[in-house]
């Protein structure tokens, strides 16, 4: 339960911190910390326009996406506080729940009949397909190292093994989670949320036709998804033995740091060329395989 609430709180600040970082880095005054939340509030007050081409799928997809992220949140622990739902192999469900949301957003884009949205949907499908193996290999290494297969137990057993080199592994793991989160949330360097040209968009173009309530749901889902990955990174980096207040502090520290990293990346980096993205994402799988090698060494299977 603690994990769930903390993620929701972190999600409130997350987009604001990214925005602030970006405006400070570019020397602008920029919007306030709560501007993204105010945007959502405005969207909730507005009416909606639906394209005449669209049908049921377009209307239910944002709700499915939000519920699937919320469902994934149920599976995440907060240090030794177990998740609301925990069972062996819950991370498989985690990955597939996020995929469920993605499935619906992709077909919703195709429902509008717009060629631009079809293009975005195709890219989104390709990138999420390519990033899947990296996530699963990373989790396989967790399972192999800790001998557990549930989020709620894996992380607790991470630092108990008494192996001092676990730290190296945690860093690789955290780096991968950051990168996977960037791909999954369609941020730089794979996708640029601030681009103005539909041809160069991935995620932004598939939600082009949304307005009002549904668009607010999509924004909520995105923010929650950020905090979701932030929470994964926190669990990986912070040992369970710490004192509770310290841990809550560390949680928000990690989330803030994550948001700042995203903000800084977006300020100083250009988006990849579209046809370079697959290579970039496949590199993540390669890094995950390196993490696997590290674990093989740590568990003394490989010299």
């Amino acid at each position: 339960m603690t994990g769930f609430i903390l993620i929701v709180i972190a999600a409130l600040f997350f987009p604001g911190i990214i925005l602030r970082t970006k405006s400070i880095a570019s020397g602008r005054k920029g919007p306030g910390l709560f501007q993204p939340l105010k945007d959502i509030a405005v969207l909730l007050r507005k009416g909606s326009v639906f394209s005449i081409s669209t049908g049921l799928i377009f209307r239910i997809a944002p709700s499915v996406a939000l519920i699937s992220v919320a469902g994934a949140m149920l599976l995440l622990p907060f240090s030794e506080h177990k998740a609301i739902l925990h069972f062996e192999g819950d991370f498989i469900m985690f990955a597939y729940l996020l995929a469920l949301g993605k499935f619906f957003m992709i077909i919703a884009a195709l429902d509008t009949g717009s060629s631009f949205e079809g293009m975005g949907a195709s890219r989104e499908a390709l990138y999420s397909m390519l990033v899947e193996p990296a996530f699963f290999i990373l989790l396989a290494t967790f399972a192999m190292f800790s001998s557990y297969t549930s989020f709620s137990v894996i992380f607790n057993h991470f630092y108990i093994t008494g192996n001092d080199y676990v730290f190296i592994y945690s860093i690789i793991g955290a780096y991968l989670f950051v990168q996977i989160a960037m791909v999954e949330n369609s941020r730089l360097p794979v996708d640029d949320p601030k681009t103005h040209l539909e041809l160069t968009m991935v995620h932004e173009v598939i939600i082009l036709d949304y307005s009002g309530f549904d668009k607010a749901l999509i924004h909520m889902a995105t923010n929650l998804k950020f905090a979701l990955y932030g929470s994964l990174i926190y669990n990986l980096l912070v040992p369970a033995g710490w004192n509770t207040l310290l841990k809550i502090g560390a949680f928000f520290g990690v989330q803030t740091l994550f948001a700042v990293i995203i903000g800084i990346t977006e300020s100083f980096r250009a988006r990849n060329k579209m046809n370079k993205n697959p290579k970039f994402i496949l590199t993540l799988t390669t890094i995950a395989l390196i993490a696997f090698m590290v674990i093989l060494i740590l568990t003394e299977k490989l010299v």
Partner: peptide, 9 residues
């Protein structure tokens, strides 16, 4: 709320 129909953008 006001819900309208229009062509795809």
């Amino acid at each position: 709320r006001v819900v309208e129909a229009g062509p795809t953008w």
